[in-house]
Simulated assay, not measured.
Amino acid sequence: MADKSLELYVHIPFCVRKCEYCDFLSAPAGADTQQEYVRNLLLEIEQKGVRCTDYEVTTIFFGGGTPSILKAGWIADILNAIHRNFKVRKDAEIAIECNPGTLTFEKLSIYKSAGINRISVGLQSASDAELRELGRIHTYEDFLKSYDLIRKKGFSNVNIDLMAALPGQTLKSYEQTLRRVLALKPEHISAYSLIIEEGTPFYEKYEADELLREKGEKPQMLPSEETERLMYERTKELLLAHGYERYEISNYARRGYACRHNIGYWRRENYLGFGLGSASLLENERFHNTTDLTDYLGGDYLAYEQEKLDKKSQMEEFMFLGLRMTDGISTECFRQTFGLTVELVYGPVLEQQIADQLLRKEDGRIFLTERGLDVSNYVMAQFLLDK
């Protein structure tokens, strides 16, 4: 019997300085803490590898935080440990998130030698004023220097992260960011709207503005909902005109460069997380690591909040994760997975969403229309089943 596929995620919870908008599990830390963390990652990888001998790793993703803050040799050590303890496909996608200002030619050389073949760079904006407001540590010039190093080192699969609806951002400044990034011809672009998360400095600063936006009134510092909508439309128009295919709500790629790791997540493939707070889905069981750094450094690699998903939850996730992708979900795959037709489970919902021109059914697939993509959160909420 063939090995089952498995994706691996490695969380690096360290950064130079925490951004004002960030609610991820991350914080600055000294070299000693970082080294001790890597030591525990190696132990966790070894422990979990014993239980995954019948899996084949198809993707490895280093996320954070800022993974590129670590010494490059430590990243190589982590990858060596994964290769020792897991079966890794020769053509596996191995990606790392990097921030401008944390890369050197030497670092990138070690990444390349260790097998990393995809680099994701967090630019967010080409405006230095907007970057300062976000609390980013880099300038646009820093980004260009890092991007140049990445290309000179021969990386041919590069993503650039962008953000819209930033404080003080205008449609003109956002379009300028888009055009500057497009001129660099990356293989992949992720374009997200800023979300003001509770518990962040941004929430304290912009909570009143966010409430005005929700009421449909004009905020003082954040772009209006109408401006954000225009940014969203401009993203689609410009990227399509420059040869980027939209394969997910916020992700665009040149043909053949869609992020395999993210696609696996949206298709509910098995994935296993290492490191602080990392999440896993293994044979329809969800769990996560401890979120307490002291406990993790003390050797706590236990699975917390383990939940075996029932068929109802699996079907819900199949629909609202799968519909994030522009090619939607396969009706035959639904039937094979659950032993039921999607029409039997979701008939009235599908009929209504199709009638409202939010969904389309074609060639055995169900997917969001352009209009449906614009209101995707509403559409996906319709696929939550009553108990």
Rank of each mutant, 00 (worst) to 15 (best):
S280I: 12
G277E: 05
G264T: 12
N262H: 11
G277S: 01
Q220M: 00
L276P: 03
R268H: 06
G243A: 05
S250M: 08
Y244C: 13
E228I: 09
T227P: 05
G273Q: 07
G277P: 06
Y232S: 07
L276R: 00
G275Q: 01
Y257H: 15
G216S: 03
E269F: 10
A258C: 12
L272R: 03
G256F: 08
L276K: 02
E245Y: 10
C259N: 14
E248F: 13
G273P: 11
G264N: 13
A253Y: 08
A253L: 09
R268E: 07
A241P: 00
G273A: 06
T227W: 02
M221G: 05
I249A: 13
M221C: 06
K218V: 08
R213Q: 09
L230K: 13
P223L: 04
L276S: 02
H261K: 00
K215D: 13
R246D: 01
A253F: 03
A253V: 04
G216A: 07
L240F: 00
A279I: 08
Y244Q: 07
A253T: 09
A241Y: 06
E214Q: 13
E237P: 01
K236E: 07
Y252Q: 09
Y265R: 10
Y252S: 06
S224A: 03
E225M: 09
E233A: 10
E245A: 14
A241H: 07
I249K: 14
L230P: 00
L240N: 11
L239W: 04
N270A: 08
L238S: 00
Y247H: 13
Q220P: 00
E269V: 03
R267V: 02
Y244S: 06
K218S: 02
E269Y: 11
Y265M: 06
I263V: 15
T235M: 13
L276H: 06
E269W: 01
S250F: 07
N270H: 14
E217L: 14
L239V: 08
Y244F: 15
G216W: 03
K215W: 05
Y271L: 12
A241E: 15
Y257M: 10
Y252R: 12
G277D: 01
R254D: 07
Y271A: 11
H242D: 15
M231H: 07
S278C: 04
R234A: 11
W266G: 13
R268K: 13
S224M: 02
Y271F: 15
G256E: 11
L230D: 10
A258N: 12
E233G: 05
L272C: 09
E269C: 05
L222F: 04
K236W: 02
L276F: 02
R260T: 11
R246A: 12
Y257A: 08
E217A: 12
Y247E: 12
L272Y: 02
E226S: 10
A258E: 15
Y257C: 08
N251Y: 13
I263K: 15
Q220V: 01
R254C: 05
S250K: 00
M231L: 10
L276T: 05
G277N: 03
L240G: 14
P219L: 01
N251C: 14
L239Q: 07
G243R: 11
L222W: 07
R246W: 06
G275Y: 01
L212I: 03
N270Y: 12
S278L: 02
L238Q: 04
L212E: 13
E217D: 13
H242S: 13
E217P: 03
Y271K: 12
L212K: 15
L240R: 12
F274H: 06
Y257F: 15
